[in-house]
Computed example of a mutant assay.
Amino acid sequence: MNVRERTQQIEKQTLSPYAALSRNTKGRDRPEEECELRTPYQRDRDRIIHCKAFRRLKRKTQVFLSPEGDHYRTRLTHTLEVAQIARTIARALRLNEDLTEAISLGHDLGHTPFGHAGERALNEILPGGFRHYEQSVRVVEKLEKNGAGLNLTKEVRDGILHHTHGQEAATLEGRIVRYADRIAYINHDIDDAERAGVLEESQIPKAITDLLGTSKSARINRLVNAVVDNSQDGQIRMDPECQEAFDELNTFMYQQVYYNPYAKGEEKKVPTLIEILFTYLKNPDHLPEDMKRIAEEEGCERAACDYLAGMTDHYAIRLFENIYIPEAWSHY
């Protein structure tokens, strides 16, 4: 028995009957020889961490565009926070922590530059629309490794696809990530909004803080416990009272931060920038070589979208400046 087989034996002996055992994976699109050390889900986690799209997350906006200061969240730090919250829940429920971590780390790989403002802009101009969770799956299936993709297991791809809207993931591990994503972003966005001076803790309605707590740590702890305490029977959920307060906190954040004209003032520039770049990149002569292959196979609009969605905020701005701003003007 090698290390992987021993790990899978431990999974069978110790994990919940509801857990997705790595030995029972539905597999990959392209069969591979098993690793002697790592389970399939551990290999997926490692492939995601080492891929280019994961590294680019460090320079993609979470909420505040190009903030002044080193302590604001980026798409990468958000991803790491989601992974830690999700792993805590999975371990408490004796579910597969490796699968949960892999889904968490891959859930935002397809996110656009400029946060949800970039996603909305691409959704408006791409025929058929644009959704970052679908693009995340496209990244791991088709765009990484020069078109070969990462060849991840079906369970990881399913969890990535269903981490935010619509149908639930097929595994409980994937459903945990949906909760962990919301728990993470609502609470770290409160923290960032306070840092930016657009929100004070005291503004959060007392009915919410009385139940969930008056600090980031207290709220995360309360929400994580609400999931763990109410998910012992093969379902992932919170108790109704906590879920209602959580939903009210989400609504409050949309009113006070996500639609705040001060916090989001720069976002009005995003649709124009995205549209201009998209129009420019629809010309295959303006695409890099790996995107020209996409253009030939699926059309120039699809290739332009893939290239644009993969950009960091800084790269998109620099490309725009290089194309449209005379070099002499950029020194003013």
Score class of each variant (00 low, 15 high):
residue 3 V to S: 10
residue 131 R to A: 07
residue 283 N to W: 01
residue 123 N to P: 04
residue 59 R to L: 03
residue 57 L to W: 00
residue 201 E to K: 14
residue 165 H to F: 11
residue 309 A to H: 05
residue 226 A to I: 03
residue 287 L to Q: 15
residue 1 M to K: 06
residue 247 D to C: 05
residue 332 Y to K: 13
residue 39 T to F: 09
residue 209 T to H: 06
residue 264 K to S: 06
residue 124 E to W: 12
residue 201 E to L: 10
residue 192 D to T: 03
residue 157 R to G: 01
residue 231 S to R: 11
residue 6 R to L: 14
residue 176 I to L: 09
residue 280 Y to H: 15
residue 317 I to K: 07
residue 154 K to I: 07
residue 279 T to S: 12
residue 53 A to E: 10
residue 328 A to I: 10
residue 68 E to T: 12
residue 287 L to R: 02
residue 105 L to R: 07
residue 299 G to E: 10
residue 118 G to Y: 02
residue 45 R to S: 06
residue 304 A to H: 00
residue 164 T to F: 13
residue 231 S to C: 03
residue 142 K to T: 02
residue 8 Q to T: 06
residue 171 T to Y: 05
residue 109 L to D: 03
residue 61 T to C: 12
residue 185 Y to V: 00
residue 173 E to K: 07
residue 152 L to F: 03
residue 209 T to Q: 05
residue 228 V to D: 01
residue 211 L to T: 09
residue 135 Q to K: 01
residue 21 L to K: 09
residue 265 G to L: 06
residue 199 L to N: 08
residue 278 F to E: 09
residue 229 D to C: 05
residue 96 N to E: 11
residue 259 Y to H: 15
residue 221 N to C: 06
residue 169 A to M: 03
residue 242 C to P: 08
residue 18 Y to I: 08
residue 182 R to C: 08
residue 184 A to T: 15
residue 6 R to D: 11
residue 20 A to G: 01
residue 316 A to H: 13
residue 236 I to A: 05
residue 245 A to K: 06
residue 195 R to C: 04
residue 30 R to C: 02
residue 262 Y to T: 13
residue 312 T to Q: 08
residue 189 D to T: 14
residue 195 R to G: 01
residue 97 E to S: 14
residue 182 R to F: 09
residue 329 W to L: 12
residue 257 V to I: 15
residue 288 P to N: 11
residue 173 E to Q: 10
residue 180 A to Q: 00
residue 216 K to Q: 15
residue 330 S to I: 13
residue 81 E to D: 13
residue 205 P to M: 12
residue 28 R to F: 06
residue 200 E to M: 08
residue 122 L to I: 05
residue 240 P to L: 13
residue 88 T to A: 11
residue 272 T to L: 11
residue 113 P to S: 12
residue 72 Y to F: 15
residue 264 K to V: 10
residue 295 A to Y: 04
residue 321 E to S: 15
residue 190 I to H: 04
residue 106 G to E: 00
residue 38 R to F: 15
residue 164 T to P: 00
residue 241 E to I: 03
residue 230 N to K: 11
residue 269 K to M: 13
residue 260 N to I: 07
residue 119 E to A: 15
residue 193 A to K: 08
residue 248 E to M: 10
residue 109 L to Y: 05
residue 193 A to V: 02
residue 95 L to I: 03
residue 160 I to M: 15
residue 235 Q to R: 07
residue 42 Q to H: 07
residue 54 F to S: 05
residue 20 A to R: 14
residue 276 I to K: 12
residue 229 D to K: 14
residue 283 N to G: 05
residue 304 A to N: 02
residue 28 R to N: 08
residue 197 G to K: 02
residue 100 T to A: 10
residue 214 T to K: 01
residue 175 R to W: 01
residue 136 S to K: 02
residue 267 E to N: 14
residue 32 E to D: 02
residue 107 H to A: 08
residue 33 E to D: 12
residue 55 R to G: 14
residue 73 R to Q: 12
residue 8 Q to E: 14
residue 167 Q to I: 01
residue 223 L to V: 03
residue 287 L to I: 08
